[in-house]
Design a protein around this nucleic acid. Structure first.
Ligand SMILES: [Mn+2]
Ligand SMILES: [Mn+2]
Ligand SMILES: [Zn+2]
Ligand SMILES: [Zn+2]
Lengths: 139, 139
DNA sequence: ATTATTTTGCAACATAGTTGCAAGGTGTTA
DNA sequence: TAACACCTTGCAACTATGTTGCAAAATAAT
């Protein structure tokens, strides 16, 4: 299924390279989110660390993946919906991090509520991250 | 006003040391939040980096400060309200980070809304971080 | 096929955070 | 207040994370 990756890269106006195809494939295979370290592990010595950093950066810029802030100071990345394009993301959904299994979920159908801010504060971006136990880990 | 710091440390069952008094004083003086690097700057060479790390950890554990996740992958810390104790924080307010001046605010009077999660997901903690421009930076 | 443009790997560097251990400081008890 | 036990600190060494410049390789355009 290499066609899918190639298509997506073309759609976002990126040249087709091995690193990009492979890293994009990881995201298409993974239900949850991935951290830089995950990709480094999965790909072994196939690519340089720096290439992975730069690829992730590029994917974020082009609207292929979005970042998920976490309270433990480690950025995770997940696939965007198809509407995201260069310089303009539409990922206004809630994220969930399971404390047991560590999986990060995009809750695409749970949207971030508007919050009323004090006078003079203007919101540009709102991140809502919930942590707890997921539906696979519940007792 | 060294009494204030000493009192707070005693209240949270910590022994009184120079590093703890000084670092706590920084928080009491600062309206917004502080990062590890801020404290390192403010204190110059007075304390070792490691001491600052350990002091912040201890303060978080004892309920003196709480962490604020940010989208740029850097943890910031802010004073807790008096109700927080060892192993049990009550900081369920919204945080605001100004993209212009970089200040991080605890919006103590804006509480985090409950979000409805899919079946099987149990929330333990919810972090809501808004970024944009603050009331001092608005044009 | 040739050329122009992008991407990659490497090396070097910078920042952030952790751990073990000996020395020094704090609190407790007599 | 002196002796002791316990906790905290500084130092060194280490790991992890992320960035930059540059030459070589790969890709895209002609
Ligand atoms: Mn998401
Ligand atoms: Mn706060
Ligand atoms: Zn789970
Ligand atoms: Zn501001």
């Amino acid at each position: 299924m290499e066609i899918k990756e190639t298509d997506k890269l073309k759609k976002h106006q990126l040249s087709i390279t091995d690193a990009r195809k492979k890293i994009l494939a990881f995201f298409l295979q993974t239900p949850g989110a991935l951290a830089h370290a995950d990709i480094e592990h999965k790909s072994g010595t196939e690519f340089d660390r720096v290439t992975i950093y730069r690829t992730l950066q590029t994917f974020v810029e082009k609207g292929i993946i979005h970042t998920i802030p976490t309270s433990d100071n480690s950025i995770r990345y997940a696939l965007c919906k198809d509407e995201c394009v260069t310089g303009h993301h539409h990922d206004d959904h809630v994220h969930f991090i399971c404390d047991d299994c560590g999986t990060t979920y995009c809750l695409d159908h749970v949207s971030v509520p508007k919050v009323k801010l004090p006078k003079g504060f203007k919101a540009v971006q709102t991140d809502l991250v919930v942590s707890g136990s997921c539906n696979k880990c519940e007792q």
